[in-house]
Design a protein around this nucleic acid. Sequence first.
DNA 1: CCGATTTTGTGAATGCCTTCACAAGGCGTA
DNA 2: TACGCCTTGTGAAGGCATTCACAAAATCGG
Lengths: 245, 245
Amino acid sequence: MTAQRDQLNAVGDAADQRAVSGAERTIPDATVARLAIYLRALAALADAGTATVSSDSLATAAGVNSAKLRKDLSHLGSYGVRGVGYDVVLLTEQIRSTLGLNENRAVALIGLGHLGQALAGYAGFASRGFRISALIDADPILVGGRLRGLAVQHVDQLEQVVRSENIAIAVIAVPAGAAQDVCDRLVAAGVTSILNFAPTVLNVPSHVDVRKVDLAAELQILSFHDNRKASRADFSTSSAAGVVR
Amino acid sequence: MTAQRDQLNAVGDAADQRAVSGAERTIPDATVARLAIYLRALAALADAGTATVSSDSLATAAGVNSAKLRKDLSHLGSYGVRGVGYDVVLLTEQIRSTLGLNENRAVALIGLGHLGQALAGYAGFASRGFRISALIDADPILVGGRLRGLAVQHVDQLEQVVRSENIAIAVIAVPAGAAQDVCDRLVAAGVTSILNFAPTVLNVPSHVDVRKVDLAAELQILSFHDNRKASRADFSTSSAAGVVR
DNA sequence: CCGATTTTGTGAATGCCTTCACAAGGCGTA
DNA sequence: TACGCCTTGTGAAGGCATTCACAAAATCGG
């Protein structure tokens, strides 16, 4: 079984892909999804003062095998040195640039329940090129207050806020029943990428990308594998790897 | 960690395994990941009082195409009626059974920050065959108190709680620095499936499954696509689907 | 009972991703 | 310079997953 790979496919159908104008280098989706993981491993190495790293050890740190890592990196260009490895700083910069993380993108967060507040407080966003520029909720108790130094605005002003801050990426953390409505309004206001935590399928026009994080689905997938393990428990010997979709 | 290999090898003699346990079938990982989504769509249909549904409309509700849906369902057996469609209740039951959701599985939740509390309050768990049986944290302010009717226990008692409740599935929502330690202890206590929200790669033995939810990675993937859209904005026409990995 | 209509279930084709395996390239040493 | 060692980058092969396209049921109206 492979690792978290299916989480890539988890959401989409969508093969809009047809080579529009030929000569542009296209990076496989599976690779893009892993670049973020490499980035984290690289950050840890940089913190530890490591200057160069081999594909083998970086792969181990990221939880993939080294052939895959090298193939992934080869899509960005040739930034390694044979016999030596990859320069940590240089490679970090290349990946960040590929992912478009050097622009400090503005993100709107809609829905400030526990999940929304957890997201608002997640340091990983700020340190990775994202800036939460708008906090939006419908609860009058929250609206007008501040959270992490940012004013909470009412959902009625959603369009206005998105437009004035020129926000292209939004995170939806509202209840399922409100998600499609919020989504429609975000799209109308110009948002083109959405990360959806609400347990519902969103309908969007073709130019908008949606990724979904589905907590219940994740547990159900685990349940399936757990179930299967239990049902063949008589064969106790197993020798292989553990990380599984 | 290349763990995946052995299970692939095991697939090599899959015929033997099947012979032993009889009619058991092997369901593709990609299909398992989608079954959870179908389940949600089916629940909505049942609520609406719909008795049967065609592959076409169920596929639309789930955001996939109908050929894929039928292929997925065909792995569970033949539960549709040609010319008619699928019985909503029957199909729901089949999927639940396949995923092992009829056993009301006990789940431990470790880490009760905002994210952990959001998870603890997520109604989707209870309604889908999971029962949070243990809440664990290290913060003395929380320990001893109650959350959603359940006592919060100290992380020192992790092993004891896991063993006494016979818990096989755990959700890790602690800071990255504590995740591997918590993970090791869970595994030692007998947990075999882990859902990890901490932004770190967990090392586990081969019999343990890990799924990871990585919030920063999700945003970075969106960022990549957004970046690419921006760079080819001159071609305004696009005709196909919008939901994208 | 028959033919028209609908929709499933599934071989076959296609394409994407992963893995293998090794030649190419760079460094250090003498 | 020559040689040995190490690690990258990448064709080629193999495995899964998706999509296509159609034969095989099942229902309905007459």
